[in-house]
Amino acid sequence: MSGRLRLCHRDDIAEGQARGFLPLPGARRKVIVVRRAGTLHAYMDACPHYAGGTPMAWREDAYLDGTGQHIACHAHGALFDIETGACLSGPCLGRKLTRVPLREEEDGGLSVPAQVAGRAGRED
C-alpha cells in the first residue's frame, strides 16, 4: 500500500451510487467513487468550470443528478458522463472531470495514488 491511500471497501459503494472520500485529512479535494453497471469509476470532486475546480455535491455524497444517470455539479447544474467524465451539458461543456486511477486490493479495499491528496482538481 506504500504510496497509496485507501478510500473505502468496494462493498461500500452500491450499484448506481456515488460517494465522496477525503483521501487524507486536510486534503484539498475529495475523490468521488461511483459504481455504474458493476464498474467502479473515480474522479476528483472538482468541477472543471473554474480553474482549481470546485466541489460538486449539494450534500455529503449527493453527486448524482435527480435521475441518478449522471454525475452533476450542483454549483451550476453541469452534467457529466459517469463512464468518461465528459461534461454533457452546462458551463464546462468540452471539459472533463479528472479521472483518478482506482486500484482494488486483495481484501477489496479501494485505493488511489497518494499524490491525489495534493491535487486541486482541474488540470489544464
Partner: peptide, 9 residues
C-alpha cells in the same frame, strides 16, 4: 454560498 439540488447557489 452553498451548492443546492436546484442547480444554483
Amino acid at each position: 454560498y452553498f451548492n443546492s439540488p436546484l442547480g444554483v447557489h
